[in-house]
């Protein structure tokens, strides 16, 4: 049997789909860690990105900090947190949060900064408050870039969360790390496939969300029918 057939057999084995070490349980853990990481990172990065993007204050510092954070080695940071705080759920998650902040911050900031300044000035001229400008003008206009940034961050998190299995946590990374530890290439490849499939599936889902979450006015669709639909939209209530 070659490796691929063995991997197929691994997936076909019902024993690998049951119990606390089965694929569904590991998948659940993986998604849980990912969501926790993203939630915490977004709580820091999005408000900060909005603030910096809207006011332009601390732009240089934010970009420099995000760049510096990006350069941190994942495994080193993970180990550092575990050495400082001990094993458990949160130390590895903190490490991942730090690594997830840069793409989220950059995406948010870039989205806001890319909004046409004339639009913002016009809004200000109309007498909108700064909060209204942010929420009603900048944020909707920034959505395409912002959602793109979030998508990139999610993809990165789902792929990177595998490293928490390096130190005492579960997730799909367990298959990778354990497979490596006991020199079981079949398990290793199966784990890699699972993570890749999960990342692609979630990315596909987000692509759909991105499509439907955009305000109609921002959609740049190529097909004529779509454009008609968008143009017909506002007219429909009148008709």
């Amino acid at each position: 049997m070659n490796l691929l057939e063995q991997v197929a057999a691994w997936f076909a084995d019902p024993a690998h789909w049951a119990g606390p070490e089965g694929v569904p349980a590991r998948l659940g853990e993986h998604l849980y860690y990912s969501a926790l990481t993203l939630g915490l990172a977004a709580a820091v990065a999005v408000p900060l990105g909005l603030y910096v993007g809207h006011t332009g204050r601390g732009r240089v510092a934010a970009i420099a900090a995000a760049g510096a954070l990006r350069a941190l080695p994942t495994l080193g940071l993970l180990t550092l947190f575990v050495i400082l705080l001990g094993i458990g759920l949160m130390p590895p998650v903190y490490a991942l949060v730090i690594l997830t902040i840069p793409p989220l911050l950059a995406g948010t900031y870039a989205g806001i900064a890319a909004v046409d300044r004339q639009l913002v000035d016009a809004a200000r001229g109309l007498g909108m408050t700064e909060w209204q400008i942010l929420t009603k003008v900048e944020l909707p206009n920034a959505l395409p870039v912002l959602l793109g940034g979030i998508r990139a961050a999610v993809l990165q998190v789902i792929a990177t969360v595998a490293v928490v299995a390096y130190i005492n946590l579960g997730g799909l990374g367990r298959f990778l790390i354990d497979g490596l530890a006991v020199r079981d290439p079949v398990r290793l490849v199966a784990g890699a496939i699972l993570i890749a499939v999960l990342a692609l599936a979630v990315d596909g889902l987000l692509a759909l969300v991105q499509r439907f979450a955009l305000p109609p006015g921002l959609k740049t669709s190529r097909s004529g029918r779509d454009r008609e639909a968008i143009e017909a939209g506002p007219l429909a209530p009148a008709g």
């Binding site: 050495i83 001990g86 130190i167």
Partner: peptide, 20 residues
């Protein structure tokens, strides 16, 4: 608890803090 550092600092920390 699988700790992948061959009895290194992370293992030691967990041992000294009685997590293991």
């Amino acid at each position: 608890e699988p700790i992948n550092d061959y009895g290194g600092p992370a293992t030691l920390k967990a041992l000294l803090t009685d997590q293991i």
